[in-house]
Simulated assay, not measured.
Amino acid sequence: MNPLRTLILSLTLAVSASAEEKTSGNPIFEGWYADPEAIVFNNEVWVFPTFSAPYEQQTHFDAFSSPDLVKWTKHEKIFDTGDIKWAKRAMWAPSIIEKDKKYYFFFAANDIQNDNEAGGIGVAVADKPEGPYKDLLGKPLIDKFYHGAQPIDGFVFKDDDGSYYFIYGGWRHCNITKLKPDFTGFIPFADGETFKEITPEGYVEGPFVFKKNGKYYFMWSEGGWTGPNYKVAYAISDTLMGPHKRIGTILQSDPAIGTGAGHHSVIHTKDNSYYIVYHRHPLGDKDGNHRVTCIDKMEFEADGKIKPVKITKEGVPANKP
């Protein structure tokens, strides 16, 4: 090849590589991953997703970390069914929180269909975000259906007063309960009830809550997770208990980009930027388990409402959490 042409080609590839590194791209990492729980630990963004596969193969968790939303490091098999003796299959929908220099990882397992089956929502603990994790209880934390909610899709939330709450539920029902400080069980509410239903209109699964300007933003997924109609809706409430009145849809399919955008989480960075981390299906792919993890910017109207998110192929520019 002509030396000049070789030099031009090399420069072109370098510029292309540099341009690619300026944004995260979507998906943000390789592989079939869904239900991403994104959170900032120690000035890094961590994503804990479901390994998206048939339920008999969905038996472990990987994690991913990034200092800038663009470059990601994979942490393989932070734990699996060998570490959780009661979990046999279908491990998914994680939620994680740090407390007293320990990391508590909540997850669903076994896809139980009634109160007589073994499984539900468990919790594991580790000294580092990447593990190794061990079973905190040796049994599920929630193993029964309360108010019709399948014990899946949990989210742990710390309120401003230092209280920890657990919000969860599938089968179109959502419950809230107050966690004990050591996460080994629950504290009944003042009326003696331990699990309260707070299901908003349209709710299917995948609850997530964040607080902004004194208001609780309650978010959830609607539609079927294997289909193109999967989407995220939200409410804004004065209290965590609600009522959570549906405002509208803020994340959904784009026929030019991807389908079934849903089951998300939100991160807030030091420069007051908000990002939504979610999964979607590649265009034209008919396998329901083929889901990829993506990130896009989330912005607000002057009145605090969330603007509809534009899902992209480019993802987001580099930003330190």
Score class of each variant (00 low, 15 high):
Asp111Ala: 08
Thr59Phe: 05
Phe218Pro: 09
Ser221Cys: 05
Ala38His: 11
Thr269Ala: 07
Ser265Ala: 09
Thr269Glu: 09
Asp115Met: 05
Ile97Met: 07
Lys101Asp: 11
Pro228Tyr: 03
Lys215His: 07
His75Glu: 01
Asn272Leu: 01
Asp191Glu: 03
Leu179Asp: 14
Thr177Trp: 02
Asn114Asp: 12
Leu137Ala: 03
Gly248Cys: 11
Leu7Ile: 09
Lys245Ala: 12
Glu314Gln: 04
Gly214Lys: 05
Ala235Pro: 11
Lys99Glu: 00
Asp127Phe: 10
Ile167Leu: 10
Pro188Lys: 08
Val40Cys: 10
Thr249Gln: 12
Pro308Phe: 08
Asp160Val: 03
Lys286Ala: 04
Asp160Ser: 09
Phe186Arg: 11
Ala109His: 00
Gly304Tyr: 05
Val40Ala: 12
Leu13Trp: 02
Gly154Cys: 01
Leu136Gln: 07
Gly227Ala: 10
Glu117Trp: 11
Ile39Phe: 06
Thr59Tyr: 08
Lys215Tyr: 03
Lys102Cys: 12
Ile142Ala: 10
Thr184Ser: 13
Tyr274Glu: 13
Asn114Arg: 02
Thr249Glu: 15
Pro282Glu: 02
Gly202Phe: 14
Met298Trp: 09
Phe218Met: 05
Gly206His: 15
Ser18Tyr: 12
Pro200Gln: 14
Glu20Ile: 14
Asp160Thr: 08
Thr249His: 14
Ile276Phe: 09
Ala53Gly: 14
Val316Ser: 13
